[in-house]
Amino acid sequence: MPIPQYPLSVLLTGATGFVGGTALSAFLERPDYLAGNVRLTVLVRGEARAAVLREKIGVEVLVADLADVDVVRAAAREADVILHTANADHPPSARAMLEGLKERYEKTGVQSVFIHSSGTGALTDNAKGQFASEKIYQDEDCTDIRAIPTSYVHRETDNMIMQASIDGYVRGYVVMPPLIYGRGTGLFSRTSVQIPALIRAALKLRQSIHVGPGLPLWNGVHVQDLVRLYFVLLDDALSRTPKAPTGSDCFYFCATDTYQWRELAGEIGRRLHAKGAIPTAEPRTLQPEEVQMALGEWSDFAYGSNSRSVAGKALSIGWTPAHPVGGTGLFDSIEAEYEAVLEEGADEKPKVHNDETDRAVGA
């Protein structure tokens, strides 16, 4: 099956976000981009940010919202590669992209590459902080992933990309990061969601907190290591003999760190107390009347569930995270995350899941 050849036309969504901004800065450092072999277009909502990107970076900017599906479809028709980091739960835009790529394939016979940033929120349970699950998902065999209902968070878009890959008009890859930590390198948002939210909650409540007893287990990955995986997949897809599975096995985990929510709360408490930011190092349980103010209505889902996965295929195709599997990168990032929270404002509301996620979770 023919695959795209240089020069490449690349469409990047989410370039003003935490992950997408970091991906954009990584793109700008790639030899193929520096050599003029990549034409990079970024999809951006809002002319103000688009103007900044044009002025400071010089990339081609398409100003549109994901809901502008006709614009999105037309942009996809021109793309050899799509890196979609803007929203894991916006099926209309994903559908429009795939429709554009299908039209492109029918005209050229060339499979475009579609790398989609999803998440292990799709693996979560309803533990509400009460227990640690024994269930650990792996991606060498994606049967358990495919069995997760389409109605659950991320799954509708994930399954669209899987089906398009099975149909053969794209080489699709669904990357499922866990909690993402570390500082981003984009021009705009440089912080993620969960650790900054927990730090802000600790500052507001004067004590680090966890949901319920804090027993569930999650994983983490540094944003730079996540972006590194995108490019491992891209380079493999563009090679003469791609080895990274797509189709029904298009799902990729990238966990490096494992933590218990209570353990994370303890680390946040210890490190913030050492800085004099809170009066005690000991964490405590978040009280029901504090939920809305401290973490928002998604506290059970985002901070009290189990979501356990193992990076399998990514490592086998050459992904080498700078923060090694089994390391302490997540805990070691807390001080930098704290400084970022102070820069952004300790009273900022937590970045919670958007309305599309609200619709998708349903439970």
Results as ranks from 00 to 15, higher is better:
Arg240Leu: 15
Ala265Tyr: 11
Pro196Thr: 04
Gln260Val: 14
Gly247Thr: 07
Arg183Tyr: 02
Ala244Gly: 14
Gly220Val: 10
Gln260Tyr: 05
Ala244Ser: 15
Leu205Lys: 06
Tyr152Asp: 13
Leu187Ala: 09
Tyr252Phe: 10
Val232Phe: 14
Gln224Tyr: 09
Asp144Lys: 09
His222Tyr: 13
Ala265Lys: 05
Thr185Ile: 01
Val227Gln: 05
Ile268Tyr: 04
Asp225Tyr: 01
Ile161Leu: 12
Gly247Cys: 06
Ser151Val: 13
Pro216Glu: 03
Ile161Tyr: 05
His154Asp: 06
Gln224Cys: 10
Arg146Pro: 09
Ala164Pro: 08
Pro245Met: 06
Ile195Asp: 00
Cys254Arg: 02
Tyr181Val: 04
Arg206Phe: 07
Phe231Arg: 14
Leu179Cys: 08
Tyr230Thr: 08
Ala197Gln: 00
Pro213Met: 13
Leu217Phe: 10
Val153Met: 14
Trp218Cys: 14
Ala197Met: 04
Ala164Gln: 06
Ser192Lys: 05
Leu229Val: 07
Gly212Ser: 11
Tyr152Arg: 15
Arg171His: 03
Val211Leu: 13
Leu233Asn: 11
Ile195Trp: 00
Gly269Arg: 10
Gly172Leu: 00
Asp167Gln: 13
Pro149Gln: 13
Thr256Leu: 06
Gly182Ala: 03
Ile195Glu: 00
Leu179Lys: 08
Val174Lys: 04
Arg146Asn: 14
Gly269Val: 11
Gly172Ser: 07
Val223Gln: 09
Asp249Arg: 14
His154Pro: 01
Thr157Phe: 05
Ser239His: 12
Leu187Gly: 14
Asp167Arg: 09
Gly212Cys: 07
Val227Thr: 13
Ile161Gly: 00
Leu179Ile: 06
Tyr252Asn: 04
Tyr152Asn: 14
Thr157Lys: 00
Leu229Gly: 11
Ala202Leu: 07
Cys142Trp: 00
Cys250Arg: 06
Thr241Val: 14
Leu205Thr: 03
Pro177Ser: 10
Asn219Val: 06
His222Val: 09
His210Met: 14
Val227His: 02
Arg262Ser: 13
Cys250Ser: 12
Ile148Ser: 10
Phe188Met: 12
Arg200Gln: 13
Ile199Gln: 05
Val174Arg: 02
Ile148Asp: 01
Tyr259Cys: 00
Thr258Met: 11
Ser239Lys: 08
Gly184Ala: 05
Gly186Asp: 02
Phe251His: 10
Arg183Pro: 09
Arg146Tyr: 02
Gln194Phe: 04
Pro178Phe: 08
Val223Trp: 11
Val223Cys: 10
Phe188His: 12
Tyr169Pro: 03
Ile199Met: 03
Val193Trp: 13
Thr143Pro: 00
Pro149Leu: 04
Cys142Ile: 03
Asp236Ser: 11
Ser192Asp: 02
Asp235Ile: 13
Glu156His: 09
Asn219Thr: 09
Val221Pro: 07
Pro242Phe: 02
Ala147Ser: 14
Gly184Ile: 03
Leu233Glu: 01
Asn159Leu: 13
Asp225Gln: 10
Phe253Ala: 04
Leu238Ile: 12
Thr150Trp: 05
Val211His: 13
Ile161Val: 11
Ser208Asp: 09
Pro216Ile: 05
Gly220His: 04
Arg171Ile: 01
Ile161Met: 07
Leu198Ala: 00
Val223Lys: 10
Pro216Arg: 08
Pro245Leu: 08
Cys142His: 01
Glu263Gly: 12
Ala265Thr: 08
Thr241Gly: 11
Val170Ile: 15
Glu263Pro: 08
Val170Gln: 03
Arg183Lys: 09
Asn219Tyr: 04
Tyr252Met: 03
Asp235Arg: 15
Asp225Ala: 09
Ile166Leu: 01
Val227Asn: 10
Met160His: 06
